[in-house]
Amino acid sequence: MTQMHVQSDGHDEHGHDHPEFLAHHWDNPVQQFEAGKLGMWLFLATEVLLFGGLFCAYAIWRSNHPELFKYGSQFLDTTWGAINTAVLLVSSMTMAMAVTFAARGKMKAVAVSLVLTLLGAGGFMAIKYVEYSHKFHEGFYPGMAFYEKPNASDLWMPLEETAIAQKAEIAAAEASDSAHLAAEDVARAEMPSPPADSQVWNQPEAGIGPQGLTTNNEIMEMAEFSAFLPSSVLGNIEDQPEELAFAEHHKPGEEVHLSHPLQDPERPVNAQKFFTIYFMMTGLHGIHVVIGGIVIVWLLWLTMRGRFSAAYYTPIDLGGLYWHIVDVIWIFLFPLFYLI
């Protein structure tokens, strides 16, 4: 790897037409190139599956707690998101140009395109930095840092709340939509009344929504059994934030300015989950952008050293594929978080 320049017809000790970029176990450049390409595609498949796990988590969370996503997404800045999408798309284009120029042997143009792509990567990360620091400033952190973690023993309450909501929903479906709130009252009336000595429940973050696999039946049964549940369950139900109702009397996109989300009286239970998945997915994507940037720098370096030619530019081609997949993943992330 120490030779300064490589030509496809360069001298080499293997004899006949065995150019130096060709590793000893390949018969010819085409075979090597195709292997590289297949390998890259396989790698991209694993990348997609890696994100696939998170998309799956997103889908499950969203279907379990739609209100959190409605609530959370209004705090994301669609303008910055859109600008970032554009930046990535343009960088994808310049990357494609680099590959085309490489195929034609125009190495100067390749270098210029790579620099442009790199600028795109940098710009994207800069904007992400602005967005992230803004979020942190407002007090939106991922996970537990959002606020204190409640005790395992405090699990009971939200289940109860869910039962009420479920009953309300069922009742509402039977009556009409406008009767929703009334139905909720009915559901409450059906619940056993709290004993006199019960404490006021004040840890709303311990929410358990309808689980993906919990059947309605079980929740209904639970309500029947509630007479034998720990007394903490029967806390002051009236004080609960009405997560389901929230989405209805709150226009999405409406300006909400708060110094800290905890002070928002209308914040639904477990609001931090939205930010958790937001930070995880965009964070993992950001890591990929950074890796992509490093790859581009490496390609640029090799280009400047004259390693590539029209006959051999496999790394540029493969780097390009990687960059496109990073772009494509963002194309999915943007609408999922910012738009819907």
Partner: peptide, 17 residues
């Protein structure tokens, strides 16, 4: 490490997931 609440039932997560 951070308690993100996807698997942890005390945070509304689902251990069976």
């Amino acid at each position: 490490a951070f308690g993100i609440g996807i698997f942890d039932p005390t945070l509304g997560g689902d251990p069976v997931l």
